[in-house]
């Protein structure tokens, strides 16, 4: 059971103490070429959450490998690198470039950014090509904006993903109080925060049943209770997103709250709570989840 940050919700270099309070740091998504991101304004608070349309702003893989990764390594926190591309070959190339970097513990495939126009190829193809390019553990981050997320999860599993990151943001729109025009320059943006939690729970629940893969559950966690619910739905680990913006002390707080929730539950180890929401927590799923999770320790 790990507590991570959701990609794009923490910069370990500007907030190293926060990164060190996590079990692993997940980078903002890196793309083959540098990206400025979308025009401002690119964030807007809404009731129970926020919208963002950052647009994968990042320095590109060359600069990331040369400048960012060596500095991240100095923090001595396990590093998961999130990668994003616009074609199958781009994901494969990114994974290939990361494969021989010992400081990278795992790779997260961001196949679900809602803030870019180019729609990548099918999840199965991306995962298969990435799998062929690296021996690192691969976590595939899925969008909840799909008719049947379990189907997508099964395709990712068949193509060789080691785990799933659930969920990415889902498109939402906010209008200006006075003008009634969209508050973000791009119009819609990814909804995160407390409003996303029921959507995340549904996705984790469905994908746990469908695949038994280890799942990093995320979406609207603000408390240990929220984390526990995602674990009960099937998450083997959890990631904190929007709450890190408001409360950089959230990892330590939520870790303590979760421990007390587990103690109250009386199930012993936290791993015993994985999948509790299901009628029959599949023993085989839990075993698969644990062994794969251990492979990235």
């Amino acid at each position: 059971m790990k507590i991570l940050n959701a990609s794009g919700c923490l910069d370990a270099l500007t907030a190293p103490a926060v990164a060190r309070s996590l079990d692993a740091f997940v980078t903002k998504s890196v793309t083959p070429l540098p990206r400025e991101g979308n025009a401002p304004p690119r964030i807007a608070e809404v009731e129970h959450g926020m919208l963002n349309s950052i647009g994968l702003a990042n320095p590109g893989i060359d600069r990331f490998l040369a400048h960012t990764l060596p500095r991240l390594r100095e923090l001595e926190v396990p590093i998961w690198v999130s990668v994003g591309g616009f074609a199958v070959a781009e994901y494969a190339d990114l994974c290939d470039r990361l494969d021989d970097r010992p400081e990278v513990e795992a790779i997260e495939l961001n196949v679900s950014c809602p803030n870019v126009d180019d729609v990548p190829a099918s999840v199965g193809e991306i995962v298969a090509a990435s799998r062929a390019a690296t021996r690192k553990p691969l976590y595939t981050k899925l969008s909840p904006a799909t008719a049947d997320i379990a189907e997508v999860a099964r395709a990712a599993q068949k193509a060789g993903t080691d785990g799933l990151s659930l969920v990415n943001t889902i498109l939402g729109l906010a209008l200006d109080e006075q003008t009634l025009k969209p508050r973000l320059s791009r119009g819609a943006g990814g909804l995160s925060g407390a409003a996303l939690k029921p959507i995340a729970l549904a996705a984790v629940y469905a994908c746990y049943e469908a695949t038994g893969l280890p799942i990093v559950g995320m979406g609207g966690i603000t408390s240990g209770r929220d984390a526990l619910e995602l674990v009960a739905a099937g998450a083997a680990s959890v990631a904190l997103g929007t709450i890190l913006f408001a409360d950089p002390g959230a990892p330590a707080r939520i870790r303590a709250e979760l421990a007390s929730e587990i103690a109250n539950l009386g199930v012993g180890e936290i791993d015993n709570a994985i999948g509790l929401a299901h009628a029959e927590p599949a023993a085989i799923s839990k075993t698969a989840g644990r062994s794969a999770a251990m492979s990235v320790q």
């Binding site: 964030i43 807007a44 950052i54 702003a57 408001a246």
Partner: peptide, 22 residues
């Protein structure tokens, strides 16, 4: 001034381009 969610470099809500860099 710019909209910002975090104030500590994480959200990129307040990013501007200066001298070709974010």
């Amino acid at each position: 001034e710019a909209p910002m969610a975090c104030g500590h470099g994480a959200c990129y809500g307040c990013a501007v381009q200066i001298d070709g860099e974010i």
